[in-house]
Nucleic acid binder design. Structure first.
Lengths: 202, 202
DNA sequence: TAAGAATTCTACTACACGTTCAAATTCTGT
DNA sequence: ACAGAATTTGAACGTGTAGTAGAATTCTTA
């Protein structure tokens, strides 16, 4: 039977890069027009290729969407891990997550799928993505709870500020344009400042 | 030529109510599955009717979307006017707008279209909706600027908190379910508290 | 209760788009 | 330069769905 190791590293790497290009094109198209309004021809057009070429890398349209989701979820989970490694106080950790989440929404746009609806995903993929989002939300909630316990934050139902924070950041996908004047890290700092100050004790 | 006054008030009222029913069904469908994923048959199904019946009230699918947008925009603009009439300080006005915006996102769901993308609208309609959204954003920006001038708020670029506030609130359309535990006005109060406290001077 | 208006239905059309498949082309390693 | 693999293409198919037309039904009013 054929094994993966039979193809040369060079070929594998080339294919990996091509997949990334396709994913990036799909991401941008989905972000601008939404999943359903985006045709495979639109995505292919951005790559100077016909839509059928895409099938060499992804089995169907939904797979493109799913891959976009996984990519962005990995980003924010990595950020949570970083925050826990590098910082101790809840405010510092939360600020880091906010700044980095803003960054992936603006610098690379790779965070955009966090703002996508999950309804277009296949049921199994949808469940997985929702679970991963829940885990992210849970991590933020935990930070806020620790901040409250430590006396950094006012005692509130942590669910509410988590939704507010994620909404504020994910909404960036709607209005942000790379040509505009607002960019991370400045935007990230201001968001972190505003949203965390809203939690802080007087 | 036929004039509107030839049909009886009763008929006009009945038709008006039917339109509202259809719009409400469309709104909920769009909110749950997105515009493109929603078929006219879906909307009709909620009303116990066939899709072709809808064409008696709206010329096409896009008209449904457009009407949804107009409805919700009218709501928030009304709220801004109310805030200016009833309150004087920037914090009070802003708090009122936030609470009411949260309310239309949860109580009636009629605010949901504020969270819809505008790309599915016909160009002319899109331009109009975007202009109306801009006016709403501008009103919020103005409140924040006045709050800064009055010393209520810290001096910041007002654009940033406006985006944060609108994102936090509009994001409600994504996670809010009427069966859940969080509801306006409690949710509205907490959002107003969190988001305005984030602007306040220490 | 009957005429006419309003509403909804059935049957149909047109077309956009996801997907398949085999042929054509380009790339890779020897 | 050649063989074989990787990639892309053109042509075609099937399906889902927005929208149309006219008949059937229900509602309104006098």
């Amino acid at each position: 039977m054929a094994t993966a190791s039979q193809v040369s590293p060079h070929i594998r790497e080339k294919r990996r890069r091509r997949r990334a290009q396709i994913l990036s094109a799909a991401l941008r198209a989905f972000r601008e027009q939404g999943y359903h309004a985006t045709t495979l021809e639109h995505i292919a057009e951005r790559l100077g290729v016909r839509k059928t070429a895409l099938y060499h890398y992804f089995p169907d349209k939904e797979a493109l969407l799913y891959a976009c989701h996984l990519e962005s979820l990995a980003q924010v989970h990595r950020t949570v891990a970083e925050a826990r490694e590098r910082f101790t106080t809840a405010s510092e950790q939360l600020a880091h997550v906010i700044r980095e989440h803003v960054r992936v929404m603006t610098d690379t746009l790779e965070g955009s799928p966090l703002a996508f609806e999950t309804t277009a995903l296949a049921p199994a993929h949808q469940a997985e993505v929702i679970a991963s989002r829940d885990a992210y939300e849970h991590a933020l909630r935990e930070m806020i709870e620790r901040g409250i316990a430590a006396g950094e934050f006012r005692p509130v139902d942590p669910k509410v500020p988590v939704f507010a924070i994620l909404g504020a950041i994910n909404w960036i996908a709607r209005w942000y344009r790379p040509e505009g004047s607002l960019h991370a890290p400045e935007l990230g700092n201001q968001f972190a400042d505003h949203l965390i100050h809203g939690l802080a004790c007087r």
